[in-house]
Simulated assay, not measured.
Amino acid sequence: MLKQIENDLLRLISSGKGTYGISIYYFETEEEFVYNHDEEFYAASIIKIPIMSAVLAQVSEGKRSLSDKIRVRSEDMVSGDGILKNLTPGTEWTIHDLVVLMIIESDNTATNLLIDILGVENIQLYMTIWGFKQTQFRHKLQIKPSRKHNESNLITAKEMNHFLRDIAMGNIVSMSVCRKMIEIMKQQKMNDLLPSLLPENDGIIGMIPIWEMAHKTGYVPGVEHNVGLFYLPGHTFAISALSKNVPNRDEPKRIMSELGSLLFNTRELSRYINKS
């Protein structure tokens, strides 16, 4: 199926002035579409997915509990996305709550607290075990690190998409941990990229939704990312869409939203192909 829309995908990506890295995997046929998938990009908040996985790995190993409480001090609060920076210092939050806030609100304060608990080196060690090579985790968020290439958090579309595929197949830590991560990512509050043009899932209470997406976004000036698992009736995709050097935020928003819409419309394409 991806072969049938390959030219449409290439036209869409090439319509932008920025640099894009795209990896799409279609589970039902094992087809792949890739574009600059080995290109390295500044990770932004996409790095929070492996951090979540590392936290849950330590919980699975008995080193932590999701009910453990962490106190948020005023010196822990950092700028950027999230709500913790706006709340009263001294409040305690469970590790579970911090993981959820890190993913669905992209809370940077929650992220840094979890990094402090695990340690940068331990998170990178897990990532190495899980097969990351070019993808590197080197620093906390919103601390104005050097943007030198060898000092930055880096990702590639290829490695992120492979990791998403492993999560979907239950291969990271355990099946139950993978279900937990997907459940959290499905609660994502930032939906202005890949899913933004998809139809509303409104209807009869309890009905099966026409689509679901378990995903994470990432943004810093000049960089806009969206990666995740896209579920349609009879179709499942792993998608990693990365960008850099974009002239404005409108361009990657347009390209990624149209990408999501194009994949959504493969439902009709597949019906035509199956009948012919």
Rank of each mutant, 00 (worst) to 15 (best):
W130K: 07
L87C: 03
Y231S: 04
I184C: 03
S176Y: 09
S257T: 12
L66M: 14
I123N: 10
M1A: 08
S276Q: 14
V246G: 02
V100T: 15
S270T: 12
K17F: 06
A214G: 09
E92L: 11
E40Q: 10
Q188V: 00
N171T: 08
Y126H: 15
E183H: 14
L198H: 03
N112T: 05
T128A: 11
N153Q: 02
L114V: 04
I167G: 10
R249G: 11
L164Q: 02
D192M: 03
L198Y: 04
R64S: 09
E159N: 10
M185S: 06
N122D: 13
K189S: 13
I172D: 05
D68C: 09
Y42A: 02
G80F: 11
K85Q: 15
I83C: 09
H225C: 01
S174W: 00
K186W: 04
R138F: 11
Q58I: 00
K148S: 15
V99Y: 03
I46Q: 01
M77R: 14
K275A: 14
P199M: 07
F264H: 08
G203S: 05
V34T: 14
G16L: 04
K48Q: 13
V223C: 07
R254Q: 13
G16M: 00
K69D: 00
L101N: 05
W211G: 00
Q187S: 08
E258G: 00
S257M: 05
V223D: 03
L114M: 13
S106G: 05
D8H: 14
R147C: 05
A43N: 00
A110L: 05
T217K: 03
L242M: 09
E40V: 08
I70D: 10
G90C: 04
M160L: 14
I167F: 01
T236C: 08
S45R: 04
I95E: 07
H139Y: 13
L87R: 11
N265F: 10
P50V: 13
L10R: 15
E92P: 11
G222N: 00
L193D: 06
S176V: 07
T109V: 15
Q58R: 15
K69Y: 00
F237E: 01
W211F: 02
N36L: 01
E121V: 08
I143H: 13
I123W: 07
G90Y: 14
E251Y: 01
G16S: 01
V120G: 01
Q188L: 04
L262P: 12
G119E: 02
V173L: 13
D81K: 09
V120F: 02
L154K: 09
L98C: 08
I167K: 13
S74Y: 12
P209T: 08
L194C: 00
N161C: 13
D68S: 13
